[in-house]
Design a protein around this nucleic acid. Structure first.
Lengths: 117, 117
DNA sequence: CTGAATCCCCCACGATACTG
DNA sequence: CAGTATCGTGGGGGATTCAG
């Protein structure tokens, strides 16, 4: 990586998608919840205990709108809704794993930088 | 990647650092501005035209606090301030490049998902 | 079971202007 | 040159409650 691509600072540069997508506080966690296959809404709620239903729905809707996740309603009763990764969403797992690995590897340094002592 | 690490959903899971850091709208761009070596504040301003000085300073301060960037004042006059990546910041470039490459590769799909047509 | 509705809060972002 | 000061805004995040 020697020179910057000329469009790096353009408004439409793909890099601007990073906060656009990773800015979502829970998106990464949600995607990882789906890595092994479809999950029901209630299953996601159990896994992501710290996320309130409203915020979880928000996050899922965002991921759905951007084409990372597909939502499927299985009529009831009892009614159930499944979420699963699209091919696009699955492809995002690759850089996501890289970022998670980095975070795990440098976890201590990060904490030290934030709170020296 | 078969099973999720048990701590993935813990409050202190490293994955929670992703939005923690990538949530910063300009952080990725700033880091890439510094990939080839130290840059002065004014240089960064020129590169990042769309960022106002206040926001740029905010972003730099955040990156400095988290240990990604080092700030060096060279007394004047004329005074100058240089920013450069720390080893930690440089290590972050690796997953960052992966994310940028992914974004570039799937740019079209992303736009289609957002705005079908 | 799967959300939607409501209310609130905080703060990142941004525009503009000013300073040592 | 390298920022600060000030003001304004929007929206994501969260707690709680309600509904089909």
């Amino acid at each position: 990586m020697t020179a910057l691509p000329p469009d790096l600072f353009d408004e439409l540069c793909p890099s601007s998608l990073l906060p656009f997508r990773f800015g979502d506080k829970w998106a990464a966690l949600v995607l990882r919840c789906l890595e092994d296959g479809p999950r029901r809404y209630s299953e996601l709620r159990v896994s992501l205990r710290r996320v309130t239903p409203k915020v979880l729905t928000q996050s899922l809707r965002g991921l759905e709108r951007d084409g990372f996740v597909q939502r499927t309603v299985r009529p009831g009763p009892p009614r159930s809704v499944e979420y699963e990764l699209t091919p696009l969403g699955r492809s995002l797992l690759v850089p996501l794993y890289a970022a998670c690995a980095w975070a795990a590897e440098h976890w201590d340094e990060l904490l030290d930088a934030r709170d020296p002592g």
